Computed example of a mutant assay.
Amino acid sequence: MAREVNNLTTQIRSEFGKGSARRARREGLVPAVLYGHHTEPRHLLLNSLEFSAVLRAHGTNSLLTLDIEGEEQLALPKQIDVHPLTRIIEHTDLLVVRKGEKVVVEISLTLTGDSAPGTLVTQDASYIEVEADATNLPEDFEVSVEDAAAGVRITAADIELPAGTTLVSDPEMLIVNIIEAPSESDLEAGEDEGVAGAIAETQAADKAESAE
């Protein structure tokens, strides 16, 4: 499924520095820098609620149509800085794109289906890098593990890509590994080993303290 073109009205940012950035965020705006195609960087302000809604609905590769004082410009989020505690978007870099242009992006992977009984699914990668038309980026890729038996390995090369999209990641990169589910005895043995290891570490620490 191709991504929607999301319209965002922007403001030209005329004040700079940490103080002005904090004021902008308090006013519900996200400081942004738009760059690319050998153009001068443009400092903008985006509506925080609108930008967040686009990212929630369509992901971090959302194609944007920016209204910059009446001028339309296509762009893709290149980097999004989020506060680790408040989860507020503090800043974003936007990349200028043009219709028909190819870009390299990370596309998330979603596992579907249930593997065969008695197996365990381990996912080694949650995304792959692909090159695709900037105006026709896939939303995500589904990876089916339906009835997959132990020993099945799915690599990046096994992901079915739509026409016009090429793989950039290493084709041999492991995505999913299907293994036999551990038995109850295996789990009990693992717990016993863990307890034994903890006891051994404690005894070693006691001996070290006694030697001191």
Rank of each mutant, 00 (worst) to 15 (best):
Y35F: 15
I199H: 06
P117T: 12
T135R: 01
Q79H: 09
D186H: 06
L137W: 14
H38I: 07
E212F: 07
L167H: 04
D206Y: 12
K102T: 10
G19Y: 06
A150P: 09
A208E: 14
T202G: 02
H58C: 07
T155P: 05
F51G: 01
L187K: 12
D206C: 00
V195I: 15
Q11W: 10
G36E: 01
G70A: 00
M1E: 05
R3Y: 00
L85Q: 02
L8S: 01
Q203C: 03
R3I: 11
E40V: 13
E72S: 08
I107M: 10
E101S: 03
F141A: 06
A149T: 10
G59P: 00
G113W: 11
E90A: 05
T165H: 08
R87I: 07
S52C: 00
V96I: 14
V168D: 02
I175S: 08
S126Y: 15
G28I: 07
L85W: 08
G194M: 08
H58Q: 14
Q203W: 09
R22L: 10
E180Y: 07
E131P: 01
P162F: 12
V30H: 06
D170Q: 11
A204F: 10
H58D: 13
E106A: 15
G164I: 13
D206I: 14
F141P: 06
A148H: 13
A32T: 07
V130D: 12
Q79G: 03
L29F: 14
R23Q: 14
L120H: 10
E27V: 03
A2C: 05
K78V: 05
R87W: 11
V33G: 00
V143Q: 00
V104D: 12
L109K: 08
G113D: 04
E106N: 14
L44S: 04
R153G: 00
R56F: 10
D124Q: 11
T65W: 13
I12F: 08
V30C: 06
D158E: 05
M1F: 09
S14T: 15
E69R: 05
E184S: 06
S169T: 11
P171C: 02
G194T: 09
V104T: 15
L49P: 00
V82G: 03
E71C: 04
L44I: 04
P182Q: 09
A75V: 09
L55H: 05
S183I: 11
E72N: 06
H43W: 14
S62D: 02
F141H: 07
S115W: 04
T202P: 00
D81H: 09
H58F: 12
P77Q: 12
S144Q: 04
A116I: 11
R56L: 13
V97H: 01
E146Q: 15
L74C: 13
R13V: 11
G17S: 04
E201L: 14
I68V: 09
K78F: 15
E69V: 12
N61E: 05
A156I: 03
V152G: 04
F16V: 01
I80L: 05
R26M: 12
G164D: 08
